[in-house]
């Protein structure tokens, strides 16, 4: 069970010095500015995305990357324009894709016989408010049943223009997953048949899982004291 070949020490790629640092967090989660009893107030942690991996990736990853590049070529898309990065981290393969070419990449992944990633496992959204220009991400997980492989695609969109093409035409099961990602992050999937709220009530304002949306708890009343909700109380643990 070795880690990706990119780091000979077997450490996760995010710890390597060339990792893409997007944020530096100080202290623990929770409120800042009030008294900190946790002792972790002096923590300084940088949040880094794994850096692009160099070839060879190891195992079957090279095969998949080559097959994808040739499939994109055959379909008329420039692979270097479509694929920003290939990241091999903790023995998992991820492609960072430009959103304009997402549909081409998904078609290639599904149809090419060497790839055949028929099963769509889900889209999730991620929100990095500090990473200007790439705040909203959509992460796609694909599974190949014929070859027993998993791959991940990551697409980013800026806050100002949160549009990503919808893959419902290629993977129909993406329907509800994209609705959920719209519901929680505000990512608009162009071409989706009915992009409406799925888990929040239909007229709910805001997109709850964004980092700038408050947790929304209420202070809890005990006998003799009131404890504020987790996002506004002092750090205890």
């Amino acid at each position: 069970m070795t880690d990706g070949v990119s780091d000979p020490n077997g450490l996760p790629a995010t710890l390597s010095p060339s990792a893409d640092v997007i944020n530096t967090r100080r202290g623990m989660f929770g409120s800042h500015g009030s008294g900190d009893t946790s002792g972790y107030g002096g923590l300084v942690r940088s949040v880094a995305l794994p850096p692009p991996s160099g070839r060879p990736y190891g195992g079957w990853f090279d095969e998949v990357a080559d097959a994808l590049a040739s499939a994109l070529d055959a379909a008329g898309t420039d692979p270097d324009a479509a694929i920003d990065n290939v990241v091999v981290d903790r023995n998992e393969l991820s492609f960072v894709i430009r959103r304009e070419h997402l549909l081409a990449v998904c078609s290639a992944l599904r149809d090419q016989p060497d790839l055949r990633f028929e099963m769509f496992s889900g889209v999730s959204g991620v929100h990095y408010p500090e990473d200007a220009g790439r705040e909203l991400r959509a992460v796609y997980h694909l599974l190949s049943i014929t070859h027993n492989r998993r791959v991940r695609l990551e697409v980013s969109a800026p806050d100002a223009d949160p549009h990503i093409p919808s893959v419902v035409g290629i993977y129909p099961s993406a329907d509800w997953h994209e609705r959920e990602t719209w519901d929680f992050f505000g990512l608009i999937f162009d071409g989706h048949p009915a992009l409406t709220r799925i888990e929040m009530p239909d007229d709910w304002p805001g997109h709850p899982q964004r980092k700038d949306y408050p947790l929304g708890g209420i202070p809890v009343e005990y006998k003799g004291a009131t404890i504020p909700p987790p996002d506004t109380r002092r750090s205890y643990s």
Binding site: Y213, L215, G216, G217, I218, V220, P229, P230
Partner: peptide
């Protein structure tokens, strides 16, 4: 009874 461990928006 009181929202339990889920003291949040949902």
């Amino acid at each position: 009874s009181s929202g339990g461990m889920f003291n949040n928006y949902a």
